[in-house]
Design a binder for these strands. Structure first.
Lengths: 247, 247
DNA sequence: GTCCATGATTTGTCCAGACAAATTATTCTT
DNA sequence: AAGAATAATTTGTCTGGACAAATCATGGAC
């Protein structure tokens, strides 16, 4: 039962993690309720307790469940939509933030939202969004933050021009579309850097980073959603690897 | 060799974690260099690979090392002083933040800094600091942030009066002492909530929280250091446990 | 010297157990 | 009925293996 691929390029605990995620999202295990015990999950998925615990550990790191010794594992939330939530109340607060930053556009591409991503950034599955990969640098040129701007497709023609400016592109996009940002949501979560982010930031893969998701919402729906990847300035490993000793 | 306690109330991996921390801090394994392989650590500490990996996993979660399959484990930083660093440049930036917040003082007590805490908040070991446990609530009364303010002892007489105000207590303390805040450092790190924080915030133990450490430094040294514990508003488990169904 | 194949090293994944510790449920005593 | 002791349940810690996958070092062919 539920033995999908024989090659198993994806680890077993990842499959169990995904299965539990789906169960939680579908309301099979409501928020606040207990998950089946580790022993029971072992029987259901036909794996050892190590594998089950590895799957649960990742659910725990994403803040979806909480384990208590002797009491069991409880569901904390039904989706990993981010851990910490903040919100702005005015556009000026946003523009002030964007004005003092300098963004460097690396590449632009289009993506089609899958259900997971659509749910995360507030769009609809199947929608075409424009993806802007940006880099924010210090005065000395060190990359400090990696920004992925997801912009709805009807902004595609405007975005390339505005993106070249270092000004308040967020407010610029909103005003260009003739819409006012009603409110904004900011969610941040600490994550180890995936490879493409690590490469852009010139840090080690897996190094601790802070991912910030911002959603700027107008009356007609979400205007802009962006991912920001921040890090604490640790690029020792990379410097070692590229061999700056030659200089 | 290095078999300290036989009762071992603290898990073995915690001892190994502490030993490696000390080795890293003392420069035995410099930043950027490789740690010994897991097999070698097994031999040194005379434990199984599981225990070594458990110790390394926690070092990794604190951002002190980074592991790469096939390449080894590398030292990222020499102390877990926090992952993300930001800094203010003016007092007005600070006061604006403090002015729009309402703090509720829970209790005040004195503490003597141990070497670990002293290093963390920028004081000296053996110094007496005043500890303010505060709570920040929403309009509806829900606790949102838990703040522990560590204030040097020579502010002890002034603090209780100022603490009752909802105004900018940070700047108030600084001006009362006749000193100007030169700069401030902000470090934040995502951590599972320890018990005493979880109790104060009315969330589940181990739930994801954001711990922010702020240090306000004057010309004569650190003025104020504070821990902030933020969370995302998840208190489902607590509500379940105290049985709101009776209402 | 450059490139490529090979082998060694190192971490990732996984198993089948065992006992400890914390919590919860039960039973017994008063 | 209330409280205390006991038992059952559940997660935490740990062992000693095994093989896979990624990386690195070595050496040979060109």
């Amino acid at each position: 039962m539920t033995i999908p691929t024989h090659g198993a390029r994806t680890p077993r605990y990842a499959e169990i993690n995904a299965a539990l995620r789906e169960d939680i999202a579908s309301g099979c295990y409501p928020v606040g309720e207990l998950l089946p015990s580790e022993a029971e999950l072992c029987r259901r998925f036909n794996v050892s307790r190590f594998t089950v615990r590895e799957a649960l550990r990742r659910l725990q790191l994403d803040g979806m469940v909480a384990k208590v010794q002797g009491a069991g594992t409880r569901v904390l939330r039904d989706a990993p939509t981010g851990v910490f939530v903040q919100s702005y109340r005015s556009v000026s607060e946003l523009t002030q933030y964007a004005a003092e930053t300098h963004l460097e556009i690396i590449k632009t591409e289009k993506t089609i939202l899958d259900s997971d991503m659509a749910n995360r950034i507030g769009g609809q599955s199947g929608e075409v969004w424009l993806l802007l990969s940006c880099l924010r640098r210090t005065d000395s040129g060190d990359p400090l933050a990696f920004v992925e701007c997801f912009i709805p497709d009807h902004f595609a023609e405007i975005a390339p021009d505005l993106a070249r400016d270092s000004g308040p592109i967020y407010a610029g996009l909103a005003s260009a579309a003739g819409e006012a940002i009603e409110h904004a949501v900011q969610e941040s979560q600490a994550l180890p850097a995936p490879r493409h982010i690590a490469d852009a930031l010139e840090i080690a893969e897996g190094a601790p980073t802070l991912r910030i998701l911002r959603r700027y919402v107008s009356a007609s729906g979400p205007l802009i959603s962006s991912f920001n990847w921040h890090h604490g300035g640790d690029r020792y490993i990379h410097r070692t690897r590229i061999g700056l000793a030659e200089d």
